[in-house]
Amino acid sequence: MYAVEFETDIRDGIVKIPEEHERLKNAHARVVVLVEEPEADTEVRAFSEHSAGTIDEWRALSEDEVWT
């Protein structure tokens, strides 16, 4: 599985695949829709914008040695 990212408008429940991704027009895919919604619940938005990289205690370089 691989990811392809593009922006498009959804019209009447239909997502138009851009021409540069034409090979996807007759393919099975898992779809994730990210919608910009400025009036979203601020508490939910706070959770979605959380990043482990913002917590100083989790930035220890020795922790990264596990993955190298």
Rank of each mutant, 00 (worst) to 15 (best):
Y2N: 05
W58V: 00
E7D: 13
L24R: 00
K16H: 01
E36M: 10
W67Y: 12
E7T: 11
A29S: 05
L24S: 01
F47H: 09
T8I: 03
H28A: 08
E43R: 11
E19K: 15
V66N: 10
D41E: 13
E36D: 13
S62E: 10
I55F: 12
P38V: 06
V35N: 02
I14A: 01
A46T: 04
T42H: 11
I10F: 01
A52R: 07
E37C: 05
S51P: 08
A46W: 14
E57C: 07
E65N: 03
G13W: 01
E39G: 06
A40P: 00
K16F: 01
A46Q: 12
G13Q: 02
W58P: 00
L34F: 11
A3M: 06
V32K: 08
V32L: 05
E20S: 12
R45V: 15
S48Q: 13
L61S: 14
W67S: 07
L34G: 04
H21F: 15
A29N: 01
V15D: 03
S62Q: 02
T42C: 06
D12Y: 02
E65G: 04
T68H: 13
E63P: 01
N26R: 12
V15N: 01
E57N: 10
G13R: 03
D9F: 14
P38G: 08
V33F: 07
D56S: 13
T68R: 04
H21P: 04
E19S: 04
H50P: 01
F47S: 06
K25D: 02
D64F: 13
E22C: 08
E65P: 01
E65Q: 06
A40W: 13
K16Y: 08
I10V: 08
V35E: 07
E39N: 11
H28Y: 10
E5G: 05
T54N: 14
